[in-house]
Design a protein around this nucleic acid. Structure first.
Length: 273
DNA sequence: ATAGGCGCCTGCTGGC
DNA sequence: TGCCAGCAGGCGCCTA
């Protein structure tokens, strides 16, 4: 589910209620997530304060008062991290419950499909969590010259390159399709075939699409919600994703759906030649 | 180096 | 009404 704009929306909505608070206890569910939970993390976490909540790519990073330690969360496809009153019964598929100071609220992690993960990480060098070492730049810091170098040296389809978190962090299936539509580049074009002006156009389109998606608080298709069950709004501005058979906003030709890089891909055959 | 396929899971939709 | 296939915003592993 969540790509960069959705994760950013969750981080912004959680920050006021979470930063500065102390984790009093941890309860874990019986199901394993993608990353296993280490039993002694419970003890290490209890009594620590959340100093900051930030985002890196699609990852959420909670900086803790225990030096070098971070609580890391990835939402996978259906994960949700939210603060709820302790009295409210936890939903089915709740895998972690952190009691917060004063005891009235809990931080809960919920994920039906369990493709998400949550773990305690001790920083190693510059990487606050192991996966961070492999992450490319944030889209907003992406330099057109280095992006062009990465793209033009690859024989993969440009769509697959955009989904590669080592090239640019945070772009997923929706925003890859939307950025390619905006830049008028066909998703199956090989990276090595892109010109410098095309790569620059694409880099700008990524920033434009993600910025607008953050402004509208992400895309809600089936189950992305933040805060108190609030839906995002960017799904109303989709130009390619999920619009199979509907007219292109530029030329009216029906949007085509193909399978590319193992993912459903939507584009205009005329505008994205 | 890269494509393609599968697996990990639950839940929803559409066709029969 | 019910069943079943196909699909879903992610990612890692395997093979060729």
């Amino acid at each position: 589910m969540p790509e960069l704009p959705e994760v950013e929306t969750v981080v912004r909505s959680l920050r006021p209620g979470l930063v500065g608070r102390t984790l009093m206890s941890v309860q874990t569910g019986m199901h394993r997530l993608r990353t296993p939970w280490n039993a002694n993390w419970n003890q290490l976490l209890t009594g620590t304060k959340v100093l900051a909540l930030t985002r890196r790519g699609k990852w959420m990073v909670m900086q803790l008062s225990r030096p070098k330690y971070h609580l890391i969360v990835h939402l996978g496809m259906t994960g949700r991290l939210l603060i709820e009153p302790a009295q409210k019964p936890a939903a089915l598929h709740t895998h972690f419950v952190f009691a917060l100071d004063r005891g009235e609220e809990e931080l809960r992690f919920f994920d039906p499909r369990r493709f998400g993960c949550l773990f305690l990480s001790q920083a190693q060098g510059d990487a606050r969590f192991p996966q961070e070492a492999e992450l490319g730049p944030e889209p907003f810091d992406l330099q057109a010259s280095s992006f062009f170098a990465d793209v033009s040296s690859s024989k993969r389809a440009i769509k697959a390159i955009l989904l590669d978190q080592a090239v640019v962090a945070g772009v997923g299936n929706i925003y890859a399709d939307e950025a390619l539509y905006t830049a008028r580049i066909a998703p199956q074009r090989l990276g090595s075939s892109l010109t410098l002006p095309e790569a620059k156009r694409l880099q700008k389109a990524i920033v434009q699409v993600l910025t607008r998606a953050i402004e509208t608080k992400g895309s809600t298709i089936a189950n992305f919600y933040y805060g108190d069950n609030e839906a995002g709004g960017f799904q109303h501005e989709f130009r390619a994703y999920g619009r199979t058979g509907e007219p292109c906003h530029r030329c009216q030709l029906p949007i085509t759906r193909i399978r590319l890089a193992g993912r459903s891909t939507h584009y205009c055959q005329r505008c994205q030649a």
